[in-house]
Nucleic acid binder design. Sequence first.
DNA 1: AAATGTGAAGACCTTCACAGCA
DNA 2: TGCTGTGAAGGTCTTCACATTT
Lengths: 230, 230
Amino acid sequence: MRRVYSSDFLCNEVTKLLMDVPEVVVNRLPQYVRALRQILEDGSEIVSSQLLGQTLQMTPAQIRKDLSYFGRFGKQGRGYNVRYLVTELQDILQLDHEWNIAVVGVGRLGRAIISYPGFSPEGFKVIAAFDSDSRQVGQSIGGLIVQPMDELADTVRQKGIQIGIVAVPAAQASDVVERITSCGIRAILNYAPVNPLVPPEVKVRNIDPVLSLQSMTYYLRSGDTGSTSN
Amino acid sequence: MRRVYSSDFLCNEVTKLLMDVPEVVVNRLPQYVRALRQILEDGSEIVSSQLLGQTLQMTPAQIRKDLSYFGRFGKQGRGYNVRYLVTELQDILQLDHEWNIAVVGVGRLGRAIISYPGFSPEGFKVIAAFDSDSRQVGQSIGGLIVQPMDELADTVRQKGIQIGIVAVPAAQASDVVERITSCGIRAILNYAPVNPLVPPEVKVRNIDPVLSLQSMTYYLRSGDTGSTSN
DNA sequence: AAATGTGAAGACCTTCACAGCA
DNA sequence: TGCTGTGAAGGTCTTCACATTT
């Protein structure tokens, strides 16, 4: 009944990519890429899960298990070829592509994002800016002319924009996210202090420093470092 | 056999606070606070876990379980008194305090953080700024005079600074985190693209938009929305 | 009747430990 | 020998489902 190639066929790398990989695992891959690039810069061509784990404060087992979702990149007894592993992970994450980004909202925060020099070396290009405030429209920010919101859909299509960054006040955020997703954009980096509702095919990452601070203050109880005196 | 007060005594709120609450639970509390404040503004005095769950895209069971780590705040058959629940959660998270913050690194990013208007309404006050570059020292940014790094320890002590924000380049981040923690600071918001190693009593929250983008691109595979054609 | 609080069950993720290979 | 890749075990978090209370 079972055909000769079925086992290998079902387990090749293409199929692995289509398998359900836990999202926590995917979220760690960029950290691996960053650490591996650093290790390469420091002159090592080979790395063990042990050593990589020390660098990233993770257990070697977790790293091996994570990588095993995508293929068999190591050599038993030796470790991983750093150069090879980096390129594989970059492929998996599609970091070889260039990604075009539109920023919506050009207030203080939006301007800082547009001028942030850390995106473009990683292949993330902010190539359009939008604002609903007509006084902002037409202004030049970091080489971009601010466009009105009703040009969003056309520009996304014409310029091949795949990622949206939301930098508008909380009150407008849900509407803006709705407009962005209805243009077919499936990845949103959201700086507004709301957790927008999106269709299941859309990924959102929220960046919210106030929430981060508010969860840390829980642990800032006076002299206590975790031990109790019974 | 069972003494009248024993159960209540062992389960009072002080004891609950000392129990080990999962960190994921603590991380959700600020979201509850934000949503509850909004609900209050919208005019509701009572809310059910059902309704709160809809707002936050969480299951009602999760909300009830999370809250149960800290006390019994609801009334069966009625729901939660919003005003009461907000104040309880604010107490738990210590959001009634004012928290003093030092920003280290006054480059583009550090300046944006110092001038960010979203911290202070939430009780987070940036009251000092430091930089290792002597050309920055002495400059005024958002009303703060940039200080040299060797004044860090004294200023932290004198001004009662409890939180540090790191906004320096990756290469300096580990050193800066080390200096900050050695001043006794136990909460760090890190904008540098590294995951610094800290003693167990120190909490770090990393804010790294590039990592967020790099994990989303994994999912941006062409027309596929998750279904396979067999 | 309606909604909480919570043990128990289930899902998910991490770690272990070892077979297998260089 | 040394290190990977991986089933199995262990641990953590989420969800279920219902007794309980208003």
